[in-house]
């Protein structure tokens, strides 16, 4: 008769211990790159942060003494991401609503779901080349070629799948009872979605949107083909139609320069980029927590 007490030497218990520790080690290895990357950038870039960084234009490479600041790139990233959001959020949320609420699982919705998955897997550089061919080389936007607007469009292509998918999945998580409740007292489909289902799914949709923004803000490849780069301050609405700098492209350009000052500027920009993407993520968490609270009032 086997004893009921736990026996260390039993092969199943040894195997169990082994696999538990193996998975813990794998989990640790998985998180290591993030820790190293963030600390490295914080150390390398953090030391370069000065008030002038945020206000000055970058100097053209060659002037080794002072590289200037990243103001145009910072503002450019904000503008380009905003343009991308303005395009991708309404279209994406609308498409997600169609998939989750209106479609009945027919051929059309299956085709859209499949298409969205394919779009999510399209390499970002292809999105850039596509907009280059469609907008930049044809000068279709009032004769302008490389522009912040084109950059925003390229990024919106990358945001779109994330927004559609999270809206679709977020809405599917809303219990059907809630829809029935609303429809059962004579609410139309439109009122039900707008007043009941969408608010209930707000948290997951907002998270998806923020993730999409965070992904888009860090993209370089599509911007090289569309927004290109600019050294100059963005001063007016008209600048949307000209080359526009962005943090990602600034890092790409300046990290490859042989000059130390430019390299340092690239590190500083990396620091700002990582920090802002991190804070956007944290912001989404706070937003989610806040909406949770108001729900319970």
């Amino acid at each position: 008769m086997n004893s009921l007490y736990y026996q260390k030497r039993l092969s199943r218990n040894i195997g169990d211990k082994f696999f538990t520790s193996l998975s813990v080690i794998c989990a640790l290895i998985a998180i290591l790159p993030l820790i190293f990357l963030v600390t490295y950038i914080l150390i390398k870039g953090g030391s370069q942060i000065t008030p002038e960084l945020f206000t000055l234009e970058p100097n053209p490479p060659g002037d080794d003494l002072d590289a200037g600041g990243i103001n145009p790139a910072l503002v450019g990233t904000l503008i380009i991401t905003t343009i991308a959001s303005i395009i991708a959020i309404p279209v994406g949320v609308g498409g997600g609503i169609y998939l989750a609420e209106y479609s009945k699982g027919g051929a059309f919705s299956r085709f859209i779901r499949f298409g969205v998955n394919v779009l999510a897997g399209v390499p970002s550089i292809i999105a850039g080349v596509f907009i280059y061919a469609l907008i930049v080389s044809t000068k279709i936007l009032f004769g302008s070629m490389y522009s912040g607007l084109a950059g925003g469009m390229a990024l919106s292509i990358l945001m779109l799948p994330t927004v559609i998918k999270t809206t679709d999945e977020g809405l599917k998580l809303v219990p059907n009872e809630l829809r029935y409740a609303s429809l059962g007292i004579g609410a139309s489909m439109y009122t039900t979605i707008l007043k009941v289902t969408l608010p209930s799914a707000f948290r997951s949709i907002a998270t998806g949107v923020v993730l999409g923004i965070a992904r888009a803000a860090g993209e370089t490849a599509p911007l090289i083909f569309t927004a290109l780069f600019s050294y100059y301050y963005i001063i007016g609405f008209g600048d949307l139609f000209y080359e526009m700098g962005s943090l990602a492209v600034l890092i790409y350009n300046f990290a490859l320069e042989p000059y130390d000052a430019q390299n340092k500027l690239a590190w500083a920009a990396s620091f700002i980029l990582v920090l802002s993407i991190l804070s956007v993520n944290i912001f989404s968490r706070i937003l989610a927590a806040f909406t949770e609270k108001t729900k319970r009032v």
């Binding site: 029935y180 409740a181 609303s182």
Partner: peptide, 10 residues
């Protein structure tokens, strides 16, 4: 209609 599971709105 009133349903099987109580389903108040949030």
């Amino acid at each position: 209609m009133v349903f099987q599971q109580p389903n108040p709105f949030p």
